[in-house]
Amino acid sequence: MRWRLAALGVALCLAGGIGRAESGDAEAGAVVFQKCSGCHQIGAGAEHRIGPHLNGIFGRVAASHGDFSYSKSFQRAGAGGLEWHAETLDVFLENPRAITSGTRMSFRGIKDAKDRRDLIAYMRRFSDNPADIPEADPTAAATSHDVDPAILALVGDPDYGEYLSGECTTCHQAEGGDDGIPSIVLWPEEDFVVAMHAYKSKTRNHPVMQMVAGRLGDEEIAALAAYFARLPD
């Protein structure tokens, strides 16, 4: 890990502190954040979802929320001293794998430097005074859905989920890696259930997932959500 952080340091020196020299447009960044909001919440009342909440990220050591399960890759980065500032966020957001090769974050990065600056400016709004976060609503897309509360209330049987998971792990890695097919481990159960029902109702677009979810019953989806929420142990 250390060599990678050292390399990152070199890259930052060469880049000459881009994030700070040119400040981004936070309003535009709010739009860019829509790419993130499926998994991350930010703003008043933000909580960990598929990814950790992003309030107060500036100056924080990577992987330092004690109540979130990070990938080993992220834990090593944090232990190696990675801190989040405009510069490190910029490098990370350009290509997350360059810093944390084993991250479960299913995101390829933002190639456009202005988009990254804008996004960082937006996130900074929720970090300047972490104790006094602006009264913005959490932005997670997962909160807008029409899944029947009775379905969300089902308590899944993780043992049944383990058996059913065989159909998932032909493509999705049980270890949580993401190489072109997203990680599905350690999601909040509700997010998992909402996503699967969106495929089942064909409001979320992917032919393989629509087919797989299409024949899963409510109990089965709940079982899978319960099982994958606990992986990897």
Binding site: T169, T170, C171, G177, D178, D179, I181, V208, M211
Partner: peptide, 29 residues
Amino acid sequence: FISETGEDSATRKATYEESEGWYTGITAD
């Protein structure tokens, strides 16, 4: 299901990238 003729290049590229993810997934499985 089956891919459709005349799909745009972004869809086709995503399908290829998905196959690479599947390869990693199934060999680990």
